[in-house]
């Protein structure tokens, strides 16, 4: 599936909830189910500090595709991370660099990707793209 297809699928899933509590319960569930990041990557080097919550992010390239793992100390932040990872995982650096994250707005979670929330997510999206750019450059150089 392309990033766009995955994001449409997420939008459809969230379309079932007409009540904010159901939506957040789903998000919290996703946060709790987020696969654990390898403890060796939960270091200062991988941390993205927000004022409210913090995020750890790691990326690896396998057969030309990117695989992210991440964690946060806040569970709702983790839920949003899980959506971002699901839409970007197993995609090529080029596809990730071109992708948008507008689907987060469309499922009514816009506030969580706003710099005013200071939860580390805005920087995390930047960092995800930065990994894509770095892997792309690495590939071109080899």
């Amino acid at each position: 599936m392309t990033i766009q297809e995955i994001q449409s699928e997420i939008e459809e899933e969230f379309g079932f909830f007409d009540d904010w509590m159901d939506k957040y319960e789903h998000l919290i569930g996703l946060g709790k189910d987020l696969p654990l990041i390898d403890p060796q990557f939960k270091t200062e080097e991988h941390i993205i500090k927000g004022c409210q919550s913090q995020v750890w992010l790691h990326a690896e390239l396998e057969d030309g595709k990117l695989f992210y793992t991440a964690d946060s100390d806040a569970i709702i932040t983790k839920g949003v991370i899980s959506l971002l990872i699901r839409s970007f995982n197993a995609q090529t650096p080029d596809a990730i660099l071109e992708a948008s994250t507008d689907f987060i707005d469309r499922i009514g979670l816009k506030d969580h990707l706003s710099p005013t929330r200071a939860n580390g997510l805005v920087s995390m999206v930047k960092q995800m793209k930065f990994y894509a750019l770095a892997f792309k450059a690495q590939k071109q150089n080899t």
Partner: peptide, 13 residues
């Protein structure tokens, strides 16, 4: 068991 940020987000809702 709950991060203050998560509590704040839900209270805001």
């Amino acid at each position: 068991g709950a991060h203050p940020y998560d509590v704040g987000v839900l209270l805001d809702q």
